[in-house]
């Protein structure tokens, strides 16, 4: 990882996640002259204005033209620059999907997409500005690393790790402030390795993005109220997914709930389910997310509550899954 400054909880309570990204980008820009920043009329919204101020010659605003944004970035990457391109997740993953797939992933260029306003975080804007399919779309694109950081501090880590790792990246971050999960950035973030943010043996919650904080709150509550020991995994990297951590969760806890601010089809839950099924080991399993419908309009926290992907919804799901039957013996061989 790039040896930059250490971000702390203080930073991430005073700065939105995108602002932390903006600062990380400036830090990268100072250290690496080949880093350039691009956007599609969303410099303000994606908080890369600081980079623009400090490096006006290395900043490109292509206007409201996402397809061109991705194509230009691919050309720059092929010529040796390291473009960080930012626009809303919905447009990065759908409007420019062909360019993302063909120009960035197929050509396997060293370009980093920072897709903002992900999930339902721009809740009041409605479904045109919610990104509920981007994980499904992007994780099926070969060569692409897909990351959904849990908070601002993890966003910083993901951005730095993306610079250090050749190849195309898709990092989806939220609009506005994220609840603070990590006290500082020095917790050993590694691409493709889930972070165990709460240890437990009764059930594992595998979450990404803003749902990780909610899962930790649920786990704390359930320990106090129900005496349950809930493992919480921050599965920040959707691809390549941490298969080892998932299989270990199956073996250790035999109950898994996935939580994501995304359609339950094709995203984190599907990625985890694929690993579970391929492991040949059975477990009780539930996916929480957006139930294959367009999400309602409202504040992000209200939408999360309505969809049952906040702490209360997770608590209810844990109690339900704890009732599920599964084979109690310790003999896994007969289930393979």
């Amino acid at each position: 990882m790039a040896g930059g400054m250490t971000y702390t909880a203080v930073d991430s309570t005073s700065l939105s996640t995108a602002e932390i990204y903006g600062k990380a980008l400036v830090e990268l820009g100072r250290a690496h002259p080949e880093v350039v920043a691009l956007t599609a009329d969303l410099a303000k919204s994606t908080k890369i204005g600081e980079f623009q101020k400090e490096f006006p010659d290395r900043f490109f605003n292509v206007g409201i033209a996402e397809q061109n944004l991705f194509g230009v970035s691919a050309g720059m990457a092929r010529a040796g620059l390291v473009p960080f391109l930012s626009c809303f997740s919905q447009f990065a993953s759908l409007r420019a999907a062909d360019q993302l797939s063909t120009d960035l992933c197929y050509q396997n260029v060293n370009a980093k997409v920072i897709a903002t306003h992900s999930g339902t975080s721009f809740g009041q804007a409605g479904s045109t500005h919610h990104a509920i399919t981007d994980l499904a779309v992007t994780r099926s694109m070969p060569n692409l690393t897909v990351i959904c950081p849990a908070d601002g501090v993890e966003t910083y880590n993901a951005v730095m790790a993306a610079y250090e790792t050749p190849g195309p990246f898709y990092i989806r971050i939220n609009r506005g402030f994220d609840r603070v999960l990590y006290k500082d950035s020095d917790y050993g973030f590694q691409i493709g390795k889930a972070v165990t943010v709460n240890e437990g043996t009764d059930l594992t919650i595998i979450a990404c993005g803003s749902c990780v904080f909610q899962a930790v709150q649920a786990a704390d509550f359930l320990e106090k109220s129900d005496g349950l020991k809930i493992r919480v995994l921050d599965m920040h990297t959707i691809k390549p997914i941490d298969r080892e951590a998932i299989v270990k969760a199956v073996m250790d806890t035999r109950r898994i709930i996935t939580v994501e601010d995304h359609n339950v089809l094709g995203g984190l839950g599907s990625a985890v389910a694929e690993v579970v099924v391929e492991s040949g080991k059975g477990c009780a399993f539930k996916k929480l997310g957006i139930p294959d419908k367009f999400a309602p309009i409202g504040l992000h926290e209200d939408i999360m509550a309505e969809l049952g992907i906040d702490a209360n919804g997770i608590i209810a799901a844990v109690r339900e899954v704890m009732k599920a039957d599964f084979e109690l013996d310790d003999d896994w061989d007969d289930e393979v």
Partner: peptide, 16 residues
């Protein structure tokens, strides 16, 4: 796709 990529390489050449 091609002209966007070309604009990217052309801008990169100028910058470099």
């Amino acid at each position: 796709h091609g002209m966007s990529i070309a604009v990217g390489t052309a801008l990169a050449a100028r910058l470099q």
